[in-house]
Design a protein around this nucleic acid. Structure first.
Lengths: 193, 193
DNA sequence: GCGTCGATGTATCGAGCCGATACATCCCGA
DNA sequence: TCGGGATGTATCGGCTCGATACATCGACGC
């Protein structure tokens, strides 16, 4: 049973197949290119997820033209079904913790183009408060134990704190841009799809 | 069978117990405080790891004085054995990929105080080249697909790249400091321990 | 005295995910 | 013609997390 709770791969796959039908190998390449430094899914996750999506009827194996079979190597091309598109819309509407935790935020963000402005804003804000929560708790813990820590640990803490503070600042800019955009007009999506 | 390959928790536990004997709950709190934003181990990892370390004879349950039992709640305090200390020394000497991958680097760094200068340098440099590898591969992939990406994805890529570049710069500073330090003297550790 | 609530404390289970691996085909250059 | 590298599908072992269950302690109000 693959991706029961961790819908994040499910979203990633559905979102990718929404653009164009793909087979596993190519799908993984695109996914990892799409997510860059944030995540890299492995086959051990991808194939079980594809099977699960098949069983749920959210995707189907596409029948290529016979000519294509003769020339090419055997590959299984998956495409979205109508139900799959519905589910994708569902997932894109989610604006709870499952959208802004570490593992999932990047994927949701990568498909923001297909997400409503209001949902985008809530995800961004949710992620920001999540990070600020952590910042608080780490800063508190640090204040209590600062004297007991050596210089390496201190440096590690400092660096960790700084990166997260930087990410919060990044989110602030994004949120400001979103607000500016949504008060005037839809932040123009290019002419794809 | 817990922590068979992923010695990272093993190192974290052994390293913490080296300072002072601890029970599970307190151990976890200290560990997570030590690692700050980098990692947060859960009981689902910690307890199996403790059991495994017990079986290997690297730690033992400490017998508290009877008086302590009467007053306190039942808790199981673990302390390092001689073999445990040996193993810790072993782990601190490791300077391979297992020391500089994402999941483990933070832990190794957090115990740099107990690590030889030469090993520290090799871990730092290993981590740096690991990150530069990833930077290369993502930048290459990005160059090939830049036109097909929307502005959100592009922003995600840009941010991801920037954070990692920043981490490389951080490593550069640390490496420079290490070299300066080791050519003159041990980079003074405060009077703890 | 009594309830109860949050922190302390030990422990396990289900499920997701990764890394390694196996296996097969295609294409290109030596 | 032979081998190596990219393409392609698929699984297995094992680690880790999040949720959860259970129990006790101390402090608080009443």
């Amino acid at each position: 049973m693959a991706s029961g709770q961790g819908r994040v791969l499910e979203l990633a796959v559905l979102g990718s197949l929404h653009e164009t039908p793909l087979h596993g190998y190519e799908l993984r390449k695109r996914l990892n290119a799409l997510l860059g430094m944030f995540r890299a899914f492995s086959y051990g996750s991808l194939y079980p997820c594809l099977r699960s999506l098949l069983e749920q009827g959210l995707i189907v194996e596409e029948q290529p033209a016979p000519a294509a079979i003769v020339g090419g190597r055997s590959k299984i091309v998956y495409k979205l079904t109508a139900e799959g598109k519905e589910r994708l819309q569902d997932l894109l509407t989610q604006a709870g913790p499952s959208a802004w935790e570490d593992e999932s935020f990047g994927v949701h963000f990568a498909f923001f183009r297909h997400t409503e402005a209001e949902v985008r804003l809530r995800i961004l804000e949710g992620r920001r408060s999540r990070l600020e929560e952590r910042l608080d708790s780490v800063r508190t813990a640090l204040a209590r134990t600062r004297e007991r820590l050596d210089s390496y640990t201190l440096e590690l803490q400092r660096h960790g704190l700084e990166s997260v503070e930087r990410e919060v600042r990044w989110l602030n800019e994004l949120i400001a841009t979103e607000r500016r955009g949504s008060s005037e007009e839809k932040p123009e999506r290019s002419t794809d799809e």
